[in-house]
Simulated assay, not measured.
Amino acid sequence: MTIVDGNALAGDLVEVLGIDATSARLCCAGCGSTGLLALTRVHRTAMGSVARCRGCDTVLVTVVDTGAERWVGLPGARAVAAV
C-alpha cells in the first residue's frame, strides 16, 4: 500500500466526474472538520484508493477500479462544496 495526498486522485476523478475535484471542500461526517480533498491522506492499492480525513481517519472518498469500470463513493463526506 502506498500513502499519498489527495492530489493523487485527480486523474481518476476527472475520468469519472469530468472535473478536477481535488479543489473541492469536504465536510467529514466523523469529526465535522472541513478541508480540501487535495489535503486528505490517500491509501492506494491495486484495487483502488481510499481518501481519509486527516483529523479522525474517517473514509471520505473511495475509488475502485474494476478494469471495465471505475466507481467513486463518498461514504464519509457529509457535504461537498466546489471551490
Rank of each mutant, 00 (worst) to 15 (best):
R41E: 15
R41V: 13
R41D: 14
R41M: 07
R41C: 05
V42P: 01
V42L: 07
V42F: 06
V42H: 06
H43Q: 12
H43W: 12
H43V: 12
R44F: 00
R44D: 09
R44A: 14
T45N: 13
T45E: 14
T45F: 02
T45G: 15
A46C: 02
M47P: 00
G48H: 09
G48L: 03
G48V: 11
G48P: 04
G48R: 03
G48A: 06
G48K: 05
S49E: 10
S49W: 10
S49C: 13
S49G: 03
V50Y: 08
V50M: 09
A51R: 08
A51T: 11
A51C: 07
R52M: 06
R52N: 10
R52F: 01
R52H: 13
C53S: 05
C53M: 07
C53Y: 03
R54K: 09
R54W: 02
R54Y: 00
G55V: 07
G55D: 14
G55P: 00
C56P: 08
D57N: 13
D57A: 15
D57S: 14
D57H: 10
D57P: 00
D57G: 06
D57T: 11
T58Y: 01
T58H: 08
V59D: 15
V59A: 13
V59R: 11
L60Y: 03
L60C: 04
L60P: 08
V61S: 08
V61K: 02
V61R: 01
T62M: 04
T62W: 05
V63C: 12
V64N: 03
V64L: 11
V64T: 13
V64C: 01
D65E: 14
D65V: 09
D65T: 11
D65K: 12
D65R: 14
T66F: 00
T66C: 01
T66P: 02
T66R: 12
G67N: 02
G67P: 03
G67K: 06
A68P: 00
A68D: 13
A68K: 11
A68M: 05
A68V: 11
E69D: 15
E69Q: 12
R70S: 01
W71R: 14
W71A: 07
W71H: 14
W71T: 12
W71D: 10
W71E: 11
W71C: 02
V72G: 03
V72S: 00
V72H: 03
V72F: 01
V72N: 02
G73D: 12
G73M: 04
G73C: 04
G73V: 02
G73F: 01
G73A: 13
G73P: 02
L74Q: 02
L74F: 15
P75Y: 10
P75H: 10
P75D: 09
P75S: 08
G76M: 07
G76F: 06
A77R: 07
A77Q: 05
R78V: 02
R78A: 15
R78P: 00
A79Y: 01
A79W: 04
A79N: 10
